[in-house]
């Protein structure tokens, strides 16, 4: 049986993790590779690296990082942040990334999704999106959630999958950072709208929130950052608890 996935997300700036991590036993808590290895050993099913490096010149640090992760980590990982072309994606995939995630760049130029899936297959292409309700309608935002677009959430995920996205990573902006739980209704609406795996993101603060999202929606995976980085939730314990609730987990 296919298992539900638990995915820690690491924000990367110039090759280092940002927002901080709080772990005993890590020699260098800022090194994404050390953190990735730790999560992998604890039972993470997959990893997401989100590059928030501001300047394009410093982006080479990301390629170096991808290479080091692929050398040392034996679970799949996705890389996102600033990927605008097939060439950008190729460099990361060639050095061992399993999937590429695109967000604002796909909104600005939706053909990017067609190009990426034609070149690498849709299993390599993750469409990440940030959305929140505006006057009762879920709207997609770009540039790290700063700029509202004309796009409705469900229209955009459907178009994205038609164009070649093989997975959806949906962050509810109003839930993100609140630790009040995932956006269950919107997530289920996304699951019903498409026939590719959906990753839930934004709002996770407790083990109960993971149980809720897997019991009340059809998402394939749940992503979180700070609850893992600050040791509030340990992946091993989380997975044991999920198993007790009959959620199929590795």
């Amino acid at each position: 049986m296919l298992k539900k996935r638990i995915i820690p997300c690491l924000d990367i700036k110039e090759g280092r993790t940002v927002k901080g991590v709080n772990f005993e036993g890590l020699r260098d808590a800022g090194d994404p590779v050390e953190l990735a290895k730790l999560y992998s050993e604890e039972g993470a099913d997959e990893l997401v690296f989100l590059d928030i490096t501001a300047t394009i010149e410093k982006r080479d640090t990301l390629v170096e990082l991808v290479k080091r992760v692929a050398e040392q980590v034996n679970i799949p990982f996705t890389v996102g942040g600033g990927i605008r072309s097939v060439e950008n994606a190729y460099r990361l995939l060639k050095h061992g990334a399993d999937k590429i995630s695109v967000n604002s760049s796909a909104v600005k130029r939706p053909e990017l999704l067609n190009e990426l899936s034609a070149q690498f297959g849709n299993q390599c292409v993750v469409l990440a999106l940030d959305a929140r309700p505006v006057n009762g309608v879920w709207k997609v935002f770009v540039n790290g959630g700063k700029v509202e677009t004309e796009l409705n959430l469900l229209d955009w995920v459907k178009e994205g999958v038609e164009r070649g996205a093989g997975e959806i990573l949906f962050t509810s902006m109003d839930h993100d950072g609140t630790k009040n739980g995932f956006a269950l209704e919107a997530l289920e609406a996304v699951c019903q709208a498409v026939n590719v795996p959906v990753i839930a993101s934004g709002g996770c603060g407790s083990v109960g929130h993971f149980i809720d999202v897997f019991q009340k929606t059809h998402v394939d995976a749940a992503l979180a950052a700070s609850v893992f980085h600050f040791g509030e939730i340990e992946i091993l314990e989380l997975k044991q608890t999920l198993k007790k609730h009959n959620i199929t987990i590795r």
Partner: peptide
């Protein structure tokens, strides 16, 4: 079938 395609993830 009606399940999501690709079959993506961990399976036994």
């Amino acid at each position: 079938h009606e399940l999501n395609i690709p079959h993506m993830g961990w399976n036994n």
